[in-house]
Design a protein around this nucleic acid. Structure first.
Lengths: 293, 293
DNA sequence: AGAGGTTACGGGCAGCGTAAGGATC
DNA sequence: GATCCTTACGCTGCCCGTAACCTCT
């Protein structure tokens, strides 16, 4: 009789249409996946996949089985949540995080996860939101804290927090009387996130509306570097001030008062709904609590 | 994460309130059961059973888990029935059978089971109905073909066939003009099934209604022996004639025409409904088809 | 040639059975 | 002492990972 583990392997091969990707998803090797699926096929006495050269696809019977496998995995996850001691929930959770989050509440979050679910290992990747989004979609991440909802079937999004963007500059740099007009701001280089990111795009949008000479924009994927460059007086940065409380407190940096409106950065916890997601949802709720505190 | 096998072991321990009986039911040893349950408890981080000296009982969390375990086993059984090739269904089926069935359609039934479910091993026990009933109740049998429905929670009964009872005697024994009155019948010893069985009891009942001297009754649990004794002219047997077509055809035995009414023997296929019963129901339907043909 | 799946093979470990231990009636 | 569960221990067999092989583009 098939064990759940076999059905789980089958599920991911079916879901990802690939033995190799399923192996990655399950932290094992591709031959191990091959073998388990083969064993399952023998056990059931039928073929589950059509192995074409460049792709695998489910047979009709395989499609039927997929439904059962999914219910089985869901049932087990429900069971674990319902009866297992929280400390007994173990596993790896691959989490993608925007750097803004790293500089605000990520440490507290990790601490809370570790105390609530001691069995869970967090594997944290820091990257910009678009990359996190892509990784989520192909199941290379189990969850991500990133900008904006990810619109994708089977993806759930929980609002976490909104942080205003601001122009930040070294305190001793004089920009003249405040509120500082946009034209004055753009005389210095602007330092912000990479081209693919939301802050960059909204900034570019704001600037292009005003009919000004295109300013120099330095983009950098490392928030720390942006802060450092700003401290060095290289330019004005456009970042959420919430990530630099210390620099503001010491007076190293200051927020430029201006009438230029930049939309807030809205972060969500986004996660693909999988039937075997044991603690993804509880962890997302935890993130929500912490982000809003 | 717990595998189904562990939940199955847990289920049977909970169901039978005994590690030892669960081991028997699962064809394994008692320490193996102990170990699996202990491992499950460790994995979930909680105690599932209260081990008292003479009995085990579920803890509250255990009771919760039992519900999930049952659903899991049921789901797997459904899955197997739905998608597995019939030949892939393998396992042991412990079947109890009344001897009457042995002498009528059991051979054909076995043949049909073997061709429909080649993977299934039938373990057949022949005994009288009351013993079969008891064995069913304590899960020592997975199914039985026996007299009358077994009224018990979780027990399902399918009507199989009804066979009339008759007085049978050696052909050359003259009992006088027919229909033979009861008083005449009871002048010879009566040979039939053991005291605990329905035929014996109904016969005894019939005899006691008529106010006659108590006849001698030879009871024997072997139908073949009853037939043999009848052929030897030792007495008149009360058996379903359907079991002796050959003796009737050759003229060795004959049915005594009489007005004495004996109720029919009504056979059922009875089986405890267990969530892991893979093919019990299909097999019972098979028996039904054959019994009624 | 390279991507992706299968087959072959060796080693580690889970889980089984045997046997001994302990508790309770 | 008998019953029933647990613990100890050696062993088997499953399953995994490495590596070689096959096949199609």
């Amino acid at each position: 009789m098939p064990e759940i583990r076999s059905l789980e392997v089958f599920y991911w091969v079916a879901q990802l249409n690939s033995f190799r990707r399923a192996a990655e998803r399950l932290n094992t090797t591709q031959p191990a996946v091959s073998q388990r699926v083969a064993a399952l096929e023998t056990e059931l006495g039928l073929r589950l996949f059509d192995r074409a050269a460049r792709s695998v696809s489910l047979t009709p019977k395989g499609r039927e089985l997929l439904d059962y496998a999914e219910r089985m995995l869901r049932l087990r996850a429900d069971m674990m949540r319902a009866v297992a001691a929280p400390a007994a929930l173990s596993g790896l959770m691959r989490l993608g995080v925007s750097e803004t989050i790293v500089h605000t509440w990520l440490a507290k979050f990790i601490e809370r996860v570790n105390s609530t679910f001691p069995g869970i290992t967090l594997d944290i990747v820091v990257d910009v939101s678009p990359n996190l989004r892509d990784a989520l979609v192909v199941h290379e991440l189990d969850m991500a804290f990133l900008l904006g909802p990810v619109s994708q079937p089977n993806m759930t999004n929980y609002d976490l927090c909104r942080y205003p963007l601001a122009f930040v500059v070294r305190s001793d740099i004089d920009l003249g009387p405040e509120p500082v007009p946009l034209a004055r701001l753009t005389e210095m280089p602007i330092i912000t996130f990479p081209k693919t990111t939301r802050p960059y795009l909204t900034l570019r949008d704001t600037l292009s509306r005003a009919e000004l000479p295109a300013p120099r924009i330095f983009s950098n994927s490392s928030l720390s570097t942006i802060v450092r460059m700003t401290e060095d007086g290289i330019g004005i940065s456009v970042i959420p001030p919430v990530v630099i409380p210390r620099e503001l407190a010491t007076g190293a940096l200051r927020i430029v008062r201006t009438d230029v409106k930049l939309p807030d950065l809205a972060f969500t916890a986004s996660l693909p709904l999988t039937p075997d997601g044991l603690i993804a949802d509880p962890v997302a709720q935890l993130a929500r609590e912490i982000a809003q505190a």
